[in-house]
């Protein structure tokens, strides 16, 4: 199952998406696909803070700031079999179906568009969307977090507007492909697509 979770900054979308991934994965291994690039001290601190927040939740972190489909290699290689971030052992679970939480689309889109070789909106959109489709096929469940950054009415420079169009398009394409789309407002999940009341969803695999 593919689920898109969207919300504003500080909306509680990350916490919701983590809980959702935990509920969905049950006894399956769960991976956290981190997209933030550790370029400076501030982002390194943020990454450490986010890791702390996830401690005890049983996620294996895979750093994948670009080429998101390659995260599957990280899961299959066995190099992370030693256990989860908080010390749970992986062991036999490697052979079971697996779940992942991708956080977040806005970082991934920015990394693909602005770092490395310059690519256009359309190329970036196709590459990222296909990458997520490939990724989700290798997983029992994939939860993707995205940001609602489209409602401030600002007219930014052309490259920022191109980035907003890219992220808007990816959100639409993912929403179309997703089994469920959830908007999180002040920590409250609102179902945009899928079962009416999110808390009544039966989370069996």
């Amino acid at each position: 199952m593919l689920i898109l979770v969207i919300g504003g900054s500080g909306s509680g979308k990350s916490a919701y998406a983590e809980d959702l991934t935990i509920r969905l994965s049950g006894k399956m291994p769960r991976y956290y696909l981190a997209t933030m690039q550790a370029r400076d001290e501030e982002s390194r601190k943020r990454i450490i803070r986010h890791r702390k927040l996830r401690e005890g939740k049983g996620f294996v972190t895979v750093e994948q700031p670009r080429r998101i489909w390659e995260a599957l290699n990280g899961m299959a290689s066995g190099s992370r079999q030693g256990g989860t971030d908080d010390g749970r052992t992986g062991g036999e679970q490697e052979k079971l179906p697996r779940c992942a939480l991708l956080e977040c689309m806005s970082n991934l889109a920015a990394n693909e568009m602005f770092s490395g070789e310059k690519i256009g909106e359309d190329e970036a959109a196709d590459q990222i969307f296909q990458g997520i489709v490939t990724l989700s096929r290798g997983l029992a469940h994939l939860v993707v977090v995205s940001n609602n950054v489209f409602e401030d009415g600002m007219r930014y420079d052309p490259s920022t507007m191109a980035y907003l169009r890219l992220l808007g398009r990816l959100n639409r394409e993912l929403a179309e492909a997703a089994d469920r789309v959830v908007e999180v407002v002040a920590g409250i999940p609102l179902a945009l697509k899928g079962p009416e009341r999110t808390e009544e969803i039966k989370w069996g695999s």
């Binding site: 489209f150 169009r165 808007g168």
Partner: peptide
Amino acid sequence: YLGGYAQG
């Protein structure tokens, strides 16, 4: 019809 930029 209301919505943010680039929402379709």
